[in-house]
């Protein structure tokens, strides 16, 4: 207590002494050094990094949109190609069906023609056969009958009458 009482001012910690000026100078020097040499580069680095990150994000966005656009295009092309393929397949099927129908029609027409032709041919043959038969059967039968009967059947009218009767009987029998 005595020492405090003897030199009261010396230990009053609330009253500054000349140390104040040293501290003031020290802090001002520190402030100057920090503000001049340390804080600006740190600020620059922070800004640079923020810019770089921002730039990278912008690039990323751009790349993403490009990629999605490409994907969209690719999908559109695939869809087009599928559509085209389906169309071609459909067309081919239709063509095939048409060809088959046409061929079938042609074949039927041909068949009908052949059948028609055959019918005509048969009719003609039958007619010519009948005509030739009629001509020849008369002579042959007359000759044959004349031989059998011994009587000439050269009389035209009788001859034809006999033949006609014979043919009528023949047709009725058959």
């Amino acid at each position: 207590m005595a020492s405090v009482a003897i030199t009261p001012m010396e230990s009053n910690f609330l009253v500054p002494n000349a140390t104040f000026f040293v501290e003031l100078a020290a802090f001002v020097v520190l402030l100057f050094l920090l503000a001049k040499f340390i804080i600006p580069p740190i600020n620059r680095a922070m800004t640079a990094r923020q810019d770089a990150i921002r730039e990278q994000f912008a690039e990323l966005d751009e790349a993403k949109s490009e990629a999605s656009a490409a994907e969209e295009e690719f999908k559109a092309q695939i869809a087009d190609a599928r559509h085209e393929a389906a169309r071609i397949r459909e067309e081919a099927r239709e063509q095939g069906a048409a060809i088959i129908a046409e061929m079938r029609e042609q074949a039927q027409v041909e068949a009908a023609r052949i059948v028609e032709h055959a019918h005509t041919q048969i009719e003609a043959d039958r007619k010519s056969a009948a005509a030739s038969l009629r001509g020849e059967v008369g002579t042959l039968a007359t000759t044959l009958a004349g031989r059998i009967v011994g009587e000439s059947l050269d009389d035209e009218s009788r001859q034809s009458r006999v033949v006609d009767r014979f043919l009528t009987e023949l047709e009725g029998a058959s």
Binding site: E10, N17, A18, T19, V22, E23, A26, F27, V29, L30, L33, L34, F37, I38, P41, I42
Partner: peptide
Amino acid sequence: GMTFNIDTIISTLVAGALVLILGFWAT
């Protein structure tokens, strides 16, 4: 004719030096 607190001044310098060392280390 003025009184200086030597211990305060020394430790001020030490604290300031630490800040500066750290600062220059970073830069």
